[in-house]
Design a protein around this nucleic acid. Structure first.
Lengths: 198, 198
DNA sequence: GGCTAAGTTGACGATGCCTTCAGCTTATAC
DNA sequence: GTATAAGCTGAAGGCATCGTCAACTTAGCC
């Protein structure tokens, strides 16, 4: 079990470095995405690259800690947006998905986190899972209302984020919005719907 | 005819190497995508990596020659599929887009060529342009029939290939089909359509 | 002030790719 | 059979990144 092995408290300078690194990493990731070189982050924090390894152990660990928080903030904001949206579950679902997608467009770090799989970042994964769970609930509501197609699965919604993320990465913001709009059209329940392929 | 700039004829062995390299490159690209290392290609052709540079000048030039042909074949096949499809322009359009997308799923080289921009591959670009022109015509027909939404632009269709390509690269074939199906639903003209965002 | 364990540093080796080029091999013409 | 230009080779140099570690620095305790 990962019983915290009672690590001795950090020295004051080390604690300061952790803080500086966290900040620098968050900035670098948000500017350049999760591929930002450690060198850049270290320089930004005013420490050497070795210190990253001393304090965090690995690139993935740093990433997990920093982006986890960043992603959590965005996801919460999107939930709040959904909750604050007038209308039924359908409207809230669109608001939620739209808000997450806008977040992906606004922040490369969030985008990479949400769409690319970073398998060695458990905390990050947890945030994404929570987000999908929330969307699942809204989708169930929207389906019950008769606004969302009956045969749309949760995986379909999850893939919206993948698609949106790829278009963000391609730098095509106009296209991103168009594709999203078309997908939303496709989600709508209609009298003449027949089952989707797949 | 593209007037050849009168370069002196190749020696027989060099001509053979060009052929072996073309073949090896086509195979490697189709197996591993356009990122296939030159080392791999050279080994496969039974020559040294230097020979690639002697014969083609650069990675991009090799790529342009080889993938251009490969892509052209796929595009022609898709056009033939569309032409052979019963129904109106709408049905042909779906058949065409579906055929290209299936090609992207079947061949990583075609996929990379069609979705990632390889800006230094002019012949390749020409193939893609021809493909889009064909789709544009079909779309115009489908719009005239009243089957395709009035406000769908050619760029929207082009982005289908981008989206499809990204999902192929993610290895999610089921998802690819679902997203495509949803997008097709979104394309359909309906009495209650109101303008798309963007 | 001095000691020492905690912490930092940055050059280094490893990886994986591209591209070059000096030196060697060989097809071809005579 | 030989000369020679065409062609081939692969080691070497680049570049960008990761992760390590021996040697140095310093916080914090006495």
């Amino acid at each position: 079990m990962p019983e915290a092995p009672q690590s001795p408290p950090l020295r004051a300078d080390a604690r300061r470095n952790v803080e500086k690194l966290r900040q620098a990493a968050a900035d670098a990731f948000s500017e350049h995405g999760l591929d930002a070189p450690l060198e850049t982050i270290a320089k930004r924090a005013g420490v050497s690259i070795g210190t990253i390894y001393n304090r965090f152990g690995s690139r993935d660990a740093l990433l997990d800690q920093v982006v986890n928080e960043l992603a959590d903030r965005r996801v919460r904001a999107a939930m709040a947006t959904a909750d604050g949206t007038a209308g039924g579950a359908w409207e809230k679902l669109l608001a939620y998905v739209g808000s997450i997608c806008q977040g992906q467009a606004d922040d490369p770090a969030f985008n990479d986190a949400f769409s690319r799989l970073y398998p060695n970042a458990p905390a990050l994964k947890a945030v994404c899972d929570r987000s999908l769970a929330f969307a699942t609930e809204l989708a169930a509501g929207a389906r019950a209302e008769g606004a969302l197609r009956q045969d749309v699965l949760m995986d379909d919604i999850a893939r919206f984020f993948q698609v949106n993320g790829d278009l963000v990465r391609a730098g095509d913001d106009a296209g991103r919005r168009r594709v999203l709009a078309l997908l939303f059209e496709g989600l709508r329940a209609r009298p003449d719907n027949h089952p989707l392929a797949g």
